[in-house]
Design a binder for these strands. Structure first.
Lengths: 358, 358
DNA sequence: CTGAAAGCGCTTACAG
DNA sequence: CTGAAAGCGCTTACAG
């Protein structure tokens, strides 16, 4: 493990000073042509590389941004991240991932800015850590088409609109009774998918509305999801990922669906990972998609929606969303003019999981 | 966006010098009790945080390590990473992920060491970049129980032994004709799973050996895998992830299995992601696991093997493997004595995907 | 107990 | 064209 070679080393060999070496290497300011060639040659020979840490100190810039994301098992987040990598790369930055960073430790990270995973973390960040530490931050947002309270710029996937699109897509193909398989209790206001579904289906389903909401938090089903299974726990106190087992929840939802013997012709599922569990379980019981049931999902994650038949999925194009999030952050870091709220458009991916029953 | 507060700022307010402030804040050396209290208070009020970049320059340590991993869609790699995070955290380091780093750009990363994803990258690294740049590196290795040529310390999951365990597990339960669903051509020597399977099954299967190898690279099946689907491509020249669609390959393998009407009672699948595709496709055609066919998989990834029925999987406990890899790297960075070769033990996870047919 | 000094590896204005 | 100097934000040995 040899010592790293510095500009001083090169200067000593060539017989000059670091100032000159710097000018030669940086191609700035005058330096004798022959001497310059010499310096470049020696640098090459010694495999010189400038010290990134020193450069960061000098430039007051680390050229690194961080995606603050706890759940790497959700392919949607990975897709967001790949979009960030692409945007960062294009502007000379590195986009990093750190699965176990606490707010208190952000100060120790060598980064120029941070991208929060969702509204929940954005709020928490703004309330606590962000209050007295001014690191540029932006956040992904999955809400209802309005600017959240926090003073953090967001790019939002409007889930009201998304659910509306999903329901309309199904209605246009003749579906009337459309169930929803979510991950929160039916009484929860946490998820805009559920809220919009309730609003739009209330008239059609009337009293039976709640039956068509496949509530995986309901006993006895919820116990199927009891955490007797291992998760990625970094330390006792924070079970990073234990809560996130979308496929399991989807499987539970499928059992609820079967038990209730619903006459729904279509189901909208919480997200793609969830849908994998849902569909797998249904097919095991002999159902066929889309012959017996139509499915629409959320996310449109590359490589995850490749169930056969291909899923119809409402997607914000996560890679694009990640790209825009990173771009927003970089603009903020570089003091460009930015909008504090931008909407991430969404569309429906073509697929074969929906049957036209008109 | 206020300016960051420095020790000079605190010194000015308290009416002393940075030396004293440093000693107070670092709790080293003498400093007047009252003055110290004052300094601490002001630091608190101003929300002072030491500059991580400066600390890195000072200590010649960034306290960051990087998992050089291109394929974040494979849950196995994510599990490895979580193990690294845990080990790093325990020793005051941060474990980072950067999905699109090229060897040439490693020099620009502020890291103390790097963990390579597999033998392939380790060899490439040793041959090219690692030759004239001495960044501590270690590598995961998926081979045949021997030290690879590269002078990079490795932790190896011996896939010969793993396959042997899998086959013996099945034989003990009465299985004789065991097929293998891999991802490489049957003639390839790239994958030790395939090599060992061929060796162990040659006698039982005789001339028909190749029929029991579900070769997904074979036309016309391979065309099913044609890349008409989008992947995570960061830039035209390097399709980062396009090649990795394990679930698709599993689906192809299932079709081959069905088309050949094999009388195998069990199939060993390449990995968990692959198995999801394989099982899904089989169940769609009416087969039942394990009633009609027993399945053994590789990896044992948390949350991915939770198909119902639960998969029997040969696993190196990826989180543990990641933990050991990071520990190895940190030992190397801190100049502790290390072994250049260590074996990662593997075991078989309990599950219901194998039927006892004795 | 305190503060000026040198140093980490680099940059850049400035006097020669 | 060149090199000594000051500075980025910190640390630590050392003279007071």
């Amino acid at each position: 493990m040899e010592k790293k070679v510095t500009r001083k080393d090169i200067a000593d060999i060539v017989g000059t000073t670091v100032s000159v070496v710097s000018r030669a290497l940086n191609n700035s300011g005058y330096v004798d042509a022959e001497k310059k060639a010499n310096i470049l040659r020696v640098a090459e020979e010694l495999g010189y590389a400038r010290d990134p840490v020193t450069m960061s100190l000098e430039e007051k810039r680390t050229k690194q941004i961080l995606f603050y994301c706890k759940d790497l098992t959700n392919a949607f987040n990975i897709a967001l991240y790949y979009g960030m990598v692409k945007a960062a790369k294009g502007r000379g930055y590195m986009a990093l991932l750190n699965a176990n960073l606490k707010f208190e430790n952000i100060k120790e990270a060598m980064i120029d800015g941070i991208i929060l995973q969702n509204n929940y973390f954005a709020d928490k960040y703004a309330e606590t850590f962000g209050k007295n530490y001014h690191l540029p931050a932006v956040s992904a947002c999955f809400g209802a088409g309005r600017n959240p309270a926090a003073c953090i710029p967001v790019i939002e996937w409007d889930l009201n609109e998304a659910m509306e699109k999903g329901i309309n897509y199904l209605r246009k193909r003749g579906h009337k009774k459309i169930a929803f398989a979510g991950q929160y209790s039916i009484t929860s206001d946490t998820d805009n998918r559920g809220i919009t579904w309730r609003n739009m289906m209330a008239e059609v389903l009337g009293d039976r509305l709640k039956d068509y909401y496949l509530d995986v938090t309901l006993p006895p089903y919820s116990t199927l999801n009891a955490p007797d299974k291992p998760g990625y726990i970094i330390e006792e106190s924070d079970s990073v990922l234990n809560e996130e087992t979308y496929a399991d929840k989807g499987r539970i939802a499928a059992r609820i669906f079967l038990d209730r013997q619903l006459d729904a012709t279509a189901v909208i599922c919480f997200n793609d990972e969830y849908t994998i569990g849902f569909v797998t379980e249904l097919e095991r019981s002999g159902m066929r998609i889309p012959e017996d049931l139509s499915i629409v999902s959320f996310d449109g994650v590359v490589g995850r929606s490749k169930l056969y038949p291909e899923l119809v999925s409402i997607t914000p194009d996560p890679m694009d969303m990640g790209y825009r999030l990173a771009t927003l952050l970089l603009d903020r870091i570089e003091h460009k003019k930015i909008h504090y709220y931008a909407k991430q458009p969404c569309r429906i991916t073509p697929g074969d999981s929906v049957r036209d029953i008109r």
